[in-house]
Design a protein around this nucleic acid. Structure first.
Length: 424
RNA sequence: GGAGAGGUGGCAGAGUGGUCGAAUGCGGCGGUCUUGAAAACCGCUUUACCUACGGGUAACGGGGGUUCGAAUCCCUCCCUCUCCGCCA
């Protein structure tokens, strides 16, 4: 949720930045202004009347004490009259605040000045690309065939247990998952991130604060009996660790990392492009989360990108970095880099990481603040990124490294897998 | 799941109808003293919103009610803790 003060006081900037989302920013801001003006006027009126009533009520007590019963009764009568007016303005204030709040949560984050204009993924900017794309030849198999052939990935068993998009791994496949998770966690820890193991279910407050609710309701699995949501990413519980906190400045930056399974309904997405591990309902992910002072947040974003690049290099995967255009960015983000790896048998780029700076968009909902040099609470900036998401990394690893003797495991991973080759 | 207790400021903990946004202690910040530090002493120390920038309004788990007036009384929801049961 954007800050009301920002929309008011930096109207021009807000309008320009929001326009990158290809939305009618002017109309949105006009509506905001209108509601906010009404809210302020109402509050001013209400406060004045409330103040009068408070004075009167106090006088009732004093008159009673002084034994002036008649005067006290008169004051009571007068205050009873005032209450109607107060109730009216109170109602109006509540309604206006509610309307304003409901309106504000529908406005997406304002893209940063560096975000390119554009409407579709076609308009995303390739920032850099690195790593040789393997030449596999026509006999190359997509990962779902490899998984079946080698016997470590069982999409069909997942269907039996749960439904489509819930993969079952076994043997070397299972071990590879665990190896990747450990490898990513170790790398993040080396880079100064604090490991967190959070709950995998969250309440509605948490889901709201990071922006999953109310708009992306259909994305999450909901355990209705207890009204809890299965997390779509560790970002949700880990960022919410700091909900309703005012941190001392010396606690920043906060650098957390967490591994969790991630659950996504992905309603309606079926077909060839989502085969195998390309898009699943449950996958494993190691997520890095940072809380930063505003002046440091963009440097932090670049630092997170560098961290992820290091992981991809270590895994010897060809990858590229995209700067998302205004039309392709997530609702809550001010600037997002996507990292994609090339999966050589499918001949396509797969998104394996999305690294975003949310500026104050999440912290405003979270009420996550820190005390600046002037000791006044200010909203912190939050960031997060996948480092990394497993299922697609596995897909690319399998496809790119297939050979006649088996599937090669990158050197950096071998201490974790305990084998150098996946064999039949 | 059953029975009971309780939710107040960073923490601990008072307050059961009227200057209570809230005693006191601890912690934190500033100062006096000191070569320095400690101790001692003094002062300050929640947040949000509105503002004619003088101030004002709101918040004691959430919501509703009673009352001229609610942290205090009533209703309701949520949460936490203790004991019992079940259990990795």
């Amino acid at each position: 949720m954007l800050e009301l003060n920002f929309l008011r006081e930096h109207r021009e900037e807000a309008e320009q930045r929001l326009a990158k989302r290809n939305i009618d920013a002017k109309a949105l801001l006009d509506r905001c202004r209108e509601l906010d003006d009404l809210r302020r006027a109402t509050q001013t009126e209400l406060d004045g009347r409330q103040s009068e009533l408070n004075t009167l009520s106090r006088s009732v007590g004093e008159l009673m004490k002084a034994g002036k019963k008649d005067e006290a009764e008169a004051a009571k009568a007068r205050s009873a009259e005032m209450k109607n007016g107060i109730a009216h303005f109170k109602e109006q204030l509540d309604a206006t605040e509610k309307a304003l709040q409901e309106f504000l949560v529908t406005i997406p984050n304002a893209p940063n000045a560096k975000v390119p204009a554009g409407k579709t993924p076609e308009d995303n900017v390739v920032v850099m690309q690195e790593g040789a794309i393997p030449e596999l030849g026509p006999q190359a198999k997509p990962h779902w065939e490899l998984g079946e052939e080698y016997g470590f990935l069982h999409m069909d068993l997942g269907v039996k247990l749960t439904g489509a998009g819930f993969p079952v791994y076994s043997g070397q496949g299972a071990r590879l998952q665990r190896a990747l998770i450990s490898f990513f966690l170790d790398k993040a820890t080396e880079a100064g991130y604090l490991e967190i193991i959070p709950p995998h279910l969250v309440n509605a407050d948490s889901a709201f604060a990071t922006g999953q609710l109310p708009d992306k309701e259909g994305q999450m699995y909901h355990a209705a009996v207890d009204d809890l949501y299965l997390i779509p990413t560790a970002e949700v519980p880990i960022t919410n660790l700091y909900r309703d906190e005012i941190l001392d400045a010396d606690r920043l930056p906060i650098k957390n990392v967490g591994y969790t399974p991630c659950f996504r309904r992905e309603a309606g997405s079926y077909g060839a492009h989502v085969r195998g591990l390309n898009r699943v309902h449950q996958f494993d992910k190691v997520e890095i989360v940072r809380v930063e002072k505003p002046e440091n947040s963009y440097a932090a974003l670049e630092g997170m990108v560098d961290h992820v690049k290091g992981l991809l290099r270590a895994l010897e995967l060809p990858y590229r970095q995209l700067l998302l255009c205004g039309g392709d960015m997530g609702f809550a983000s001010a600037m997002t880099y996507d990292m994609e790896v090339f999966s050589a048998a499918q001949q396509r780029w797969l998104e394996v990481s999305s690294i975003s700076n949310f500026e104050t968009f999440q912290s405003n909902r979270l009420k996550l603040r820190y005390r600046g040099d002037d000791k006044k609470p200010r909203l912190a900036h939050t960031l997060n990124g996948s480092a990394l998401a497993l299922a697609r990394i596995v897909a690319a690893l399998l496809e790119n490294n297939q050979g006649p003797e088996g599937i090669r495991i990158p050197k950096a991973l071998q201490p974790y897998t305990g084998f150098a080759l996946i064999t039949k």
